[in-house]
Design a protein around this nucleic acid. Structure first.
Length: 448
DNA sequence: ATCGGCTCGCGCAA
DNA sequence: TGCGCGAAGCCGAT
């Protein structure tokens, strides 16, 4: 049914006498291509019990703002409907997710959950595991190859990680059969927030900040699939030549959907592969090798969001240059307001503010310059993480932390020594001009 | 325009 | 122990 290496038993409780099986949805916020959901359905049908899905909504997730919550709620609304069609009720409650779950688990025979690797998500699962009096089973559904199977340790670069994950791909990059509930839970009388009322929920969560909302992108599995289809149809062939060009818009913008678990990486990878496009290999390298290297990074490195996550050569080298004179120094407020001397950097920051998204190539340049213009590498790292987490729709994601860390030397090799950067790879605006029509990018952003 | 060097550590071959 | 190789760039030599 579900491959055993996707499962992890988080406590030692025996199956209880309960009224239902509970699936605590948190990372995989979707009703299709969801291994945790399918495993829960399988156990529910096997035990002849209904399946109840719960979601804990807390309004104080660090650095999450109105744009993130609305995107997530749009997705949940659609997911609630799709679950209903399978005979499954979704209970959404405001509160600390493990507490919400533990309460509903009192009447559950068995609790299933999905899997994210950030510090807070792991704490939540630990907290729930200690409170719940029935088994709590974690099912991995947001990476293609389960993290511990892909590699037993933190990998040094993509070069070491790539062969490890690619040789296991055939085993895990497989379609998932969808089941329906034998006994439905729709009639269960259990209190829930109304997922259809997104603006009402936003108010309850104390988010009335209309300024921070985005109108060019909306959450949900349907939206994600539409974007994927259009990307394959219109852009994938151009990926080998144009993916790095900020002026070309040759990007999928699927990362927010992957971040909130609104689309399955397996579904995306299979669709890309089946397209047979000349861009498939490069896209799959980014979706699988790079994305899952980021998972490997946050899973094995507890310091993933601070400077100390770096390899020794980078840490030592940056320290050796801590006292170098900085030609430009900006405060967090300067950076946040996109007010530097560099129009390319300002454009990238404005894209982040206005779209909640930044072109992949500009993310590198943007992070490198924060390192160059901050009083210390430590402050630079914190500021880059803060800005990305707060403004990017895909903030607070393993890819975001790995991306910032890369700018400071993570997953990279040493390069020629220079001021401030030491041996960390340097980037400059001449590179942008040499390779791209970067002024066109600036114009596009200014037009927003 | 194109190309090699920069520099480090992993991981495999011996 | 030695050595090939990575890898989303820059820079100076040709």
């Amino acid at each position: 049914m579900i491959v055993e290496t996707r499962l992890k038993f988080l406590n030692n409780q025996p199956v209880a006498r309960g009224n239902y099986i509970l699936y605590w949805m948190q990372q995989s916020q979707r009703a299709e291509w969801n291994h945790a959901l399918e495993y829960a359905l399988y156990r529910a049908n096997d035990l002849d019990l209904p399946l109840l899905v719960c979601f804990g909504l807390n309004s104080d997730y660090p650095l999450a703002t109105a744009r993130h919550y609305r995107f997530m709620l749009e997705g949940l609304k659609e997911t609630a409907k799709a679950l209903e069609e399978k005979g499954v009720k979704l209970v959404v409650r405001i509160g600390n997710p493990p507490a919400v779950t533990a309460q509903l688990a009192e009447k559950a025979a068995l609790t299933i959950t999905d899997c994210g690797y950030l510090r807070l998500q792991r704490q939540w699962r630990q907290e729930a595991a200690s409170k719940i009096k029935c088994p709590l089973i974690q099912v991995e559904s947001d990476v293609i190859v389960p993290v511990e199977e892909a590699s037993a340790k933190e990998d040094y670069t993509a070069g070491t990680f790539r062969p490890k994950i690619l040789r296991q791909l055939h085993e895990y990059l497989q379609p998932l059969k969808a089941a329906k509930a034998k006994r439905d839970s729709l009639g269960l009388n259990i209190e829930s927030e109304n997922c259809d009322d997104i603006s009402g929920l936003m108010l309850k969560l104390n988010f009335a900040d209309e300024d921070n909302l985005l109108d060019w992108i909306h959450g949900g599995t349907g939206e994600a699939k539409k974007r994927l289809e259009q990307f394959i149809e219109n852009k994938l062939d151009r990926v080998p030549d144009e993916r790095n060009d900020p002026a070309k818009n040759c990007v999928s913008r699927l990362s927010p959907y992957l971040h909130f678990g609104q689309i399955s990486p397996i579904f995306v990878a299979l669709a890309i592969r089946e397209s047979g496009s000349r861009g498939s290999d490069i896209f799959l390298e980014e979706l699988i090798v790079r994305r899952e290297l980021a998972m490997n990074f946050v899973y094995y490195n507890p310091n993933y969001d601070s400077l100390t996550c770096l390899p020794d050569w980078a840490l030592i080298s940056l320290k050796n240059h801590a006292d170098d004179r900085r030609e430009y120094l900006y405060s967090l407020a300067d950076l946040e307001a996109a007010q530097t001397h560099d129009q390319y950097w300002n454009a990238a920051q404005k894209e982040l503010l206005l779209r909640g998204h930044m072109h992949g190539y500009m993310r590198m340049y943007w992070g490198k310059k924060i390192l160059e213009w901050s009083p210390s590498p430590r402050e630079a790292f914190q500021q880059a993480v803060y800005l990305n987490d707060r403004y990017s729709l895909d903030g607070r994601d393993p890819n975001g932390y790995a991306g910032v860390a890369w700018c400071f030397g993570k997953h990279d090799r040493a390069w020629g020594e220079r001021p401030v950067f030491g041996k960390v790879r340097y980037m400059n605006e001449a590179g942008l001009r040499r390779k791209f029509d970067i002024d066109s990018y600036v114009e596009q952003i200014e037009a927003l």
